[in-house]
Amino acid sequence: MTTSTPTAGETPGGAAADDAAIKGTQPSKSAPDDRRGSPLVRGVVLAMCLVWTIPTIGLLVSSFRTRTAVTGSGWWTVLASPLDFTQWTVQNYGDVLFNSGMGQSFINTAIVTIPATVIPITAAAFAAYAFSWMRFPGREMLFVLFVGLLVVPTQITFIPLLQRFGNLGITGTFLSVWLAHTGFGMPLAVYLLRNYMGSLPREVIESAKVDGASEFQTFTRLILPLSAPALAAFAIFQFLWVWNDFIHALVFLGALPDVKVMTVNLAELIGQRGQDWHLLTAGAFVTMIMPMIVFFSLQRFFVRGMTAGSVKG
């Protein structure tokens, strides 16, 4: 799979190549025989990795320190005597999880995020199938609409959407954020999925039709499973975006304990006194756990799904 690798965009069969993009199992461009890299290369990569991890390590270390310690000395000072357990505390996590409503917020965030990820995927998958494999008047014009909407700033909808939701009596409910995020995520979903589905080989679809499958069956039995990488890629995007979103949740849901999401809770940990850095660090970590899990379990699909139709070598 070196020189003759098909481009990712054209066949899902090129998947292995894309996996390799993350896992690095594919032979390299520069020195196919020996991939240990010169000391300079190794040094630069190591330096970059340090720059990329040290800030997060600082947060992690700080989250186990007392309030006075966090504001009194740098987190790295503990590295001088890491085994001095008197300086460590799990109190911050206890406070965040049990006294600040973060547990309920975790559930709320999940209630917001899962449907806000699945609903746009469902609608977009049907639309992308139609755009890829059905012929109908207005097809290209409608698709261009989605491509154009990719760049529209979502803030533009705030006040009018709030007012319409108000008329419907659904502000402050999960339904309102599901709908809003479905709208905001739809252009990217349709765009990514269409690019991917459009690159599936025509023969597969033709043969299914010969076998007498309806459009619906072809779609659910054949196209959906084949499109898993693109579905996963968009799912990661949308999941991270909704899970980490602060402003839309604040505006459409508010801060009542029943609906408050984690980012809103986190922003509140800064508190009126402005000074609960120790809680903020633990809170930040708690909010990061779920996205990390989703991210690492789905990342192998990510490149394959993202690059269809765009990476043409």
Binding site: G169, T171, V251
Partner: peptide
């Protein structure tokens, strides 16, 4: 302010 304005504009 953000929550108050949102809730009022949103009829809730």
């Amino acid at each position: 302010e953000t929550v108050a304005v949102s809730r009022i504009e949103g009829g809730n």
